[in-house]
Each structure stands twice: as C-alpha cells, then as structure tokens.
Computed example of a mutant assay.
Amino acid sequence: MALVGYARVSTLGQSLEVQLQKLEAAGVDKVFEEKKSGVDANRPALKQCLDYLRQGDTLLISRIDRLARSAEDLLRIVRELEEKQVTIKVLDQSIDTRDAAGKAFLGMLAVFAEFETNIRKERQMDGIAKAKAKGTKFGRKKALTAEVISSIKSMRVDEERTIPEIMAKTGLSKATVYRALSAS
C-alpha cells in the first residue's frame, strides 16, 4: 500500500517545487514528475505513474488540474485507477475517492477544470481575432520576396556564384535557394 505522488507543470519555465513539497509533507513513497501541458495526451511520467500503481495504493496529487484538464481525460484515469482498486487523494481540495462524496466532488471539479480550459481557449481566439483585425501578421516573414528572388538569380547568373556561396551570402537553405531559382 504505497503512497505515490504525481506532480506536473505545463511549461519548462515553471517550477514543481511547491507541489513536490506538498507531496513530500503528505509522506509519499515515490513521486512521478513532468513538465508537460495537461491537454497533451502524451505525458510519459503520468503513464509510468499509472502503470506503477497497484491494488491498495493511493495516488496523491496537489490539485485536480495537475492530473487532467478535461473531464473525459480525468474520468478515464479515475476509471482505470478504480479498476486497479487505487484511491486518489487531492491535497488542496481535500478529495478522497474512498467515499461517494469524494468521487462526486472529483467529477464536479473535472467539469470546472474543463470549463476553465475552454474559456481560456475562447479568450485566446478572441485576442487573435482582434490582433488580425488590427493588421497584425502571424507566423514567420516570407524568406522569398520578389527582391530576394531577383538577387539570388542575379548572383547565380550574373555573378556565376555556386549554390553554397549563395546560401552563405543569403543565409537561406539549399531548398529555398533552388525554389528562388525556379521561380518565374
């Protein structure tokens, strides 16, 4: 009957320290940690953690959103752990799935976590739409402008430069130089 912790932050720049301190204070025997978005389906440390857990073990997490960001994902994980007879404890929200109230509260929090994610996406899309309306351009600038194409063709034909010389002078890849030379 092991106490197993799982800690996750969304980006490499964020720190796991607070979560790890809480898990250690709760007396975990082993901790799985990772720096990946909760909406990312490929979370290797979570997979290792779920594979590690055995009947009678308890999975400890600091907050429910550290485990999953959608209700569907959380319910899948909860079902998998229930089949293994593993208990989930959420430290910050005082949830324990050993009783019906804990299971119900866990489900409600999953819905709210998914709602929060959807709201954030909507705000982001609104911000992008406003920026586009103001004329903001997204993505990289085009490397092959008419001026660059003309310059590359001139270097190749008039100056008789080799492809590697043109690449060095312009800082462009071989494929881009060839694309410029084949442009009409």
Results as ranks from 00 to 15, higher is better:
L3K: 15
G5Y: 03
Y6T: 10
V9T: 12
T11I: 12
T11H: 10
T11P: 00
L12G: 01
S15Y: 04
L16C: 09
E17S: 13
E17K: 01
Q19V: 13
L20V: 14
Q21S: 11
K22Y: 15
L23V: 06
L23Q: 11
A26Y: 13
D29C: 09
V31W: 01
E34R: 09
K35P: 02
S37T: 14
V39P: 02
A41W: 03
A41T: 12
N42R: 15
R43V: 09
L50G: 13
L50Q: 06
D51M: 09
Y52Q: 07
L59G: 00
R63G: 01
I64V: 15
L67W: 07
S70W: 09
E72H: 11
E72C: 01
E72L: 12
D73P: 09
R76E: 01
I77N: 05
L81C: 03
K84D: 12
Q85C: 04
V86C: 05
V86L: 04
V86I: 03
I88T: 00
I88K: 11
K89P: 00
V90C: 12
D92S: 15
Q93C: 10
S94N: 14
I95R: 15
T97L: 05
G102H: 04
A104D: 08
A104H: 03
F105A: 14
L106V: 11
L106T: 05
A110I: 04
A113W: 04
N118W: 04
I119A: 11
R123S: 05
M125W: 03
M125K: 15
D126V: 04
A129G: 00
K132G: 07
T136A: 10
G139H: 10
K142S: 09
A143H: 06
S150I: 01
S150F: 10
I152H: 02
I152L: 05
K153W: 05
S154F: 07
M155P: 02
T162D: 13
I163F: 09
P164R: 02
I166Q: 08
M167H: 07
A168G: 08
T170A: 01
L172D: 00
L172T: 07
L172H: 09
A175R: 07
V177F: 05
R179E: 12
R179W: 03
R179Y: 03
S182G: 00
